[in-house]
């Protein structure tokens, strides 16, 4: 490989040092053949990269469409023993450091992502959007989840609930709060208690502790979903 080839290759892979950048720019200005070759190779390289990425995407999509293609984890000897030992050590350590490094309960609860929706709909546009939203939610892509649910003309309570969750996990707290408020007002037995819990988290993330407290107290009083966790959060407020 010539010096010229090495320099161009480093440029394409973004591996040029500062001194090499100067040399590269100088040659681009003074050497037409060099500049021509960089131009050609940039396009060829970009095309190759684009094709390569397309193949990766296609392979992933194929696995998504056919879960049977997904590899199953091999259980190695001592696997469970190692796991148990790790859990035990972790538990002891966690107990020892708990008083010194009190973890943020809010972050812990925020990390416990609500399970993905499981209901199915027909085959109209709304159903297609809902299917895409469910898939995006499972992939932790909350921005896309929200975009897809927003396309549904008359979302049911479950869809509204996942829209609110998508806003929450997507750190769009204001929208999340508004959406959860709507659900709470519907007094739906399946979604109202969970919405009270999540709206509390949204208010806390939005630095509105007073409003969060109101819902947390309600949860504790009614002994509804997550009331123990709600009590723990109240103790910290």
């Amino acid at each position: 490989m010539t010096d010229k080839d090495i320099l161009i290759e480093k440029y394409l892979y973004k591996e040029l040092s500062e001194a090499e950048v100067q040399e590269f720019e100088q040659r681009m200005d003074s050497d037409t053949d060099f500049a021509d070759e960089v131009e050609l190779r940039s396009v060829i390289f970009a095309k190759a990269k684009s094709d390569f990425k397309q193949q990766l995407k296609a392979a992933h999509q194929k696995t998504q469409e056919n879960p049977a293609l997904k590899p199953t984890a091999k259980i190695r000897p001592l696997y469970y023993l190692k796991r148990a030992a790790a859990v035990l050590i972790f538990g002891v350590l966690a107990y020892l450091v708990y008083d010194y490094f009190t973890p943020s309960l809010l972050d812990t609860y925020m990390a416990q992502t609500h399970t993905a929706p499981t209901t199915f709909a027909g085959e109209n546009d709304d159903a297609v959007a809902w299917k895409a939203a469910k898939s995006a939610y499972k992939n932790n892509d909350y921005e896309l989840t929200a975009r897809k649910i927003e396309k549904i003309k008359s979302p049911n309570t479950e869809q509204q609930f996942y829209l609110a969750l998508a806003y929450l996990y997507g750190e769009n707290y204001d929208k999340s709060i508004t959406q959860f408020e709507t659900i709470i007002q519907q007094n739906n037995i399946n979604y109202s208690p969970a919405s009270k819990w999540y709206i509390s988290l949204a208010y806390l993330k939005n630095n509105q502790a007073k409003q969060a407290k109101k819902y947390l107290q309600q949860i504790v009083k009614d002994k509804s979903w997550k009331y123990e966790e709600a009590q723990k959060l109240l103790n910290r407020l």
Binding site: F52, Q55, L56, A59, H60, K62, T63, K70, P71
Partner: peptide, 13 residues
């Protein structure tokens, strides 16, 4: 042949 990368990517995505 870059096809092994497709497998590696899909398996570990």
């Amino acid at each position: 042949d870059n096809s092994p990368f497709n497998r590696l990517y899909a398996d570990n995505y």
